[in-house]
Every structure is written in structure tokens, then in C-alpha cells.
């Protein structure tokens, strides 16, 4: 009984949080009280304002409204998070499926590549890519994250397939005369979908954090584009004197990540057919 209430709460809380931030990003142009990019005339009067009725969350060094910048930043952060996951999941799942299903040499080769990518520091890749693309930006962030993030899904799916492959229902399907396609697409894949979906929610959260990390180091999106990560980086300079410049973007990141995690936990529970009836 308690399990039911828990997942209800998880799905509900997660969805509400994510819907909130999603809408914020989507409707940013309508919601934003000020222009997030425009540096106001008479800069001195607006620079580094503390939160007050006309600037709810205060302003940055260039006098731009922090709330508006967070609203616009949501677009980039969520876009990176979701887009990377959407690219990475089918790629990783396919690699994992092949490795797990065919096993042997195929498995060995694919998994060694995966290990190599996992062992390679993403940061070095980011720096290298920045050098190649001459300047960092949204594209380089997406490329870096895509290049490293598929490994998680690949490992997950491979593990699932390895254990599923031994299940008697797979053997029974082979005995029925089913070909490879049916085994993979009707039996293996559907049984992997739930864990993949759960992993995706955690993946998006992790991407958002990674983007913030890259942004913080200056390897993320570049001005004038704003993301939560770049806001953190800008705010860090004034952390001791004007802490809200970090606190509010940080809070946005935390809440979104939390939302994805709570949703993922909830999904994990309800996607288990044994708990459904």
C-alpha cells in the first residue's frame, strides 16, 4: 500500500517540477519582466542590484535582470539535457543490444570501446573540441556530452540483454521458430524499455549538471547566450558579496535535477508490471 502512495507522490512531484521549469523555458519571452540581454542605459544605477520588487532576483554586473536570464537560461539547459539524451539513447541502446545479444567477439570489441570512452576524461575532450571549433558554444557542449554519454545506456542495455538472453521465455521463443528480429524487437527490447526510460530521466539530469559544469569553467555556451551553467560562472565572481547570483541559478539546477530523479524513481516503480494491476 505504501509503495503505491510513494510512486504517486514521486511521479506527481517530479512532473510538477519539470512541467514548471519546462513551461518557464518555453514561455520565457512572455514571462520575462525584462530583456535578458539588453544592457540598460545608465548602467551604474542597475548594476548588481539586490532583489527588490521590480527586479525580483536582483541584477548582474551589467544590470540585466537575473530572473529573466534564468528564464531564458532554462531553454538552453533543458534543451541540452533532453537533446543529448534523445541522441544518445538510441545509439547506446543499439550498441548495448548488439554486444549483449551477439556476445563473444562483438561484445568484447564494443565493450572495450565503451570502457575506453568511459575512461577518457570528458573535460579534456571539451577543451580539445573548443580548440578545434575555435570557440566553445552550444554545439560544442552537445557534441562533447553526446560523445561520452552513450556509454551509460550501452552498459545498461548490455547488462539487461545478457540476463534476459538466459531467460527461459527467450529459449521458448527460439524453439517456436522465431528469427532474430522477433527475438530482439518483440522480446529483448520491450523488456529493456523500462530501465532505458528510467535511465533517460537520470541522464537528462546528469546532462544538465554537466552543462552547468562546462559553463562554469567557461567551456559552455558563450555570451550573449545564457544557460544556468554560464549564470553560475558569472555569479561565482561575486559569491561572497552578492550570493544570490549563484544561489538562484543553482536552485533552478537543483530543482530540475531533483525533478528528473524523483520522476525516474517513480517511473521505475510503475513500469514494473508486477506492481501494475
Amino acid at each position: 500500500m505504501t509503495a503505491w502512495r510513494q510512486w504517486h507522490l514521486g511521479i506527481l512531484l517530479g512532473s510538477v517540477l519539470l512541467a514548471f521549469f519546462g513551461l518557464i523555458g518555453l514561455l520565457a519571452p512572455l514571462l520575462a519582466p525584462h530583456d535578458p540581454y539588453q544592457i540598460p542605459e545608465g548602467l551604474q544605477a542597475f548594476s548588481l542590484l539586490s532583489p527588490r520588487p521590480d527586479y525580483w532576483l536582483g541584477t548582474d554586473l551589467l544590470g540585466r535582470d537575473l530572473l529573466s536570464r534564468i528564464l531564458y537560461g532554462a531553454r538552453v539547459s533543458l534543451l541540452v539535457g533532453v537533446l543529448v539524451e534523445l541522441v544518445v539513447t538510441p545509439v547506446g541502446a543499439t550498441i548495448g543490444l548488439f554486444a549483449g545479444y551477439f556476445g563473444g567477439r562483438m561484445d568484447a570489441i564494443l565493450m572495450r570501446i565503451t570502457d575506453a570512452v568511459m575512461a577518457f576524461p570528458a573535460l579534456v575532450l571539451a577543451i580539445a573540441l573548443t580548440a578545434v571549433l575555435e570557440r566553445p558554444g552550444l554545439l560544442s557542449v552537445i557534441i562533447v556530452l553526446t560523445a561520452v554519454r552513450w556509454t551509460t545506456v550501452a552498459r545498461l542495455v548490455r547488462g539487461q540483454v545478457l540476463s534476459l538472453r538466459e531467460a527461459e521465455h527467450i529459449a521458448a521463443t527460439v524453439v517456436l521458430g522465431a528469427g532474430r528480429g522477433r527475438i530482439i524487437f518483440r522480446h529483448l527490447l520491450p523488456n529493456c524499455l523500462a530501465p532505458i526510460l528510467v535511465a533517460m530521466t537520470f541522464g537528462v539530469a546528469s546532462n544538465i549538471l554537466s552543462e552547468a559544469g562546462l559553463g562554469f569553467l567557461g567551456l559552455g555556451v558563450q555570451p550573449p547566450t545564457v544557460s544556468w551553467g554560464s549564470l553560475l560562472a558569472e555569479g561565482a565572481v561575486y559569491l561572497t558579496v552578492k550570493p544570490w547570483l549563484c544561489i538562484f541559478p543553482g536552485l533552478a539546477i537543483t530543482c530540475t535535477v531533483l525533478g528528473f530523479h524523483v520522476l525516474g524513481d517513480g517511473l521505475r516503480d510503475i513500469l514494473d508490471p508486477r506492481l501494475r494491476s
Binding site: 531467460a167 527461459e168 521463443t173 517456436l176 523488456n191
Partner: peptide
Amino acid sequence: RRRMQIVFQDPYSSLDP
């Protein structure tokens, strides 16, 4: 395979959940 079939031991893992 149409002519020879099998019934397995484990009633849990032998059906696709």
C-alpha cells in the same frame, strides 16, 4: 521446430513478463 516443443521448469522466467 513446429514439430518439437518444450515446456520449461520455471513458471516465472518462462513467460515474457
